[in-house]
Design a binder for these strands. Structure first.
Lengths: 155, 155
DNA sequence: GATTCGGTGGACAATATGCTCAATCTTCGC
DNA sequence: GCGAAGATTGAGCATATTGTCCACCGAATC
């Protein structure tokens, strides 16, 4: 769907100060409360806003190590059962199927490099996984964000 | 920091129904309102909870294509200026410096495969970027999540 | 010219919030 | 064991917010 400038400002405002309510938003944006409510309802209905956190920092929980693991899988059974098994591992934060040399890419976290080995072993043990390649994220100069995208989409 | 079972349940509850307030949480968890407030304040202070969305789905905004781009950079100037330039591109959702063959890994979105070419061109144009390799995410069987990790950390 | 849609501004009861307090319960060091 | 510190509880209070109505307006559409 398309969003306009007001939508973008609303999202940006909520992202910056998530604890403020609908009424406060309407004051900050100089629009009526009903307008803010209608916009939020619309974006939620259209799937643009999928939820409202809470956003968890794995590092603060002790999971300091982030890695991206490329999986090569045996193609016979398809990737669905593999993904289902990966989903059972808490340290696997997301899984994609990909083009290129590998078959799947997943983001994992671990408490240490040694712990990462344990997590990778769990992944390798999944039925259908033939081989893995890992790269460790040393630093994250740009953490995950969508605000610039929202601004770009909404003017 | 360490979190306990109550913290984990609280986060899970908020993740499941983000629009409920502190009072409602306390009722659902059978604890006092002050306790819920104290737990949330503590987790926010410790950095475990970094914010409260709103969570945006790029696909719903028309950015259907997700890709992971590995960057090879000229090492002379370091990676900071490169990251700064990448941060200026709205379609670049996150950037990591990594071990292994490449130097940086970034997640980008685009409106189509053709649009992805435009985004990659923007990245290649960044001063210090020598070469890129892209893999396109075809499907996302496990979308980004932290709840299983929270449960694992909190019992 | 009529209709529809999004926005406005106001009202209402019901509810939630921020804040404080004293009392109890746990946990930990000693 | 025992005291102290910290966490939790339940309560109260004034204020703010929410959900839900409604009538009205302006712009765009047909």
């Amino acid at each position: 769907m398309t969003i306009d400038h007001l939508d973008a400002r609303l999202v940006a405002l909520l992202a910056a100060e998530p604890r403020i309510g609908v009424l406060e938003c309407s004051r900050r944006l100089n629009v009526a409360r009903g307008t803010v409510q209608a916009r939020l309802d619309r974006m939620a209905a259209k799937g643009v806003i999928t939820g409202y956190g809470p956003d968890i920092d794995p590092a603060a929980l002790g999971f300091d190590v982030t890695a991206f693991v490329t999986l090569h899988i045996r193609q016979v059974a398809g990737h669905v059962p593999v993904a289902d098994q990966l989903a059972l591992v808490p340290e696997v934060l997301e899984v994609h199927t990909i083009t290129g040399g590998g078959d799947m890419l997943c983001r994992v976290v671990a408490r240490s490099n040694a712990d990462l080995q344990r997590v990778i072993d769990l992944i390798v043990d999944v039925q259908g996984v033939v081989r893995t390649e890992s790269v460790i994220a040393l630093d994250t100069p740009v953490p995950y964000r969508t605000l610039p995208l929202v601004r770009a989409a909404g003017g």
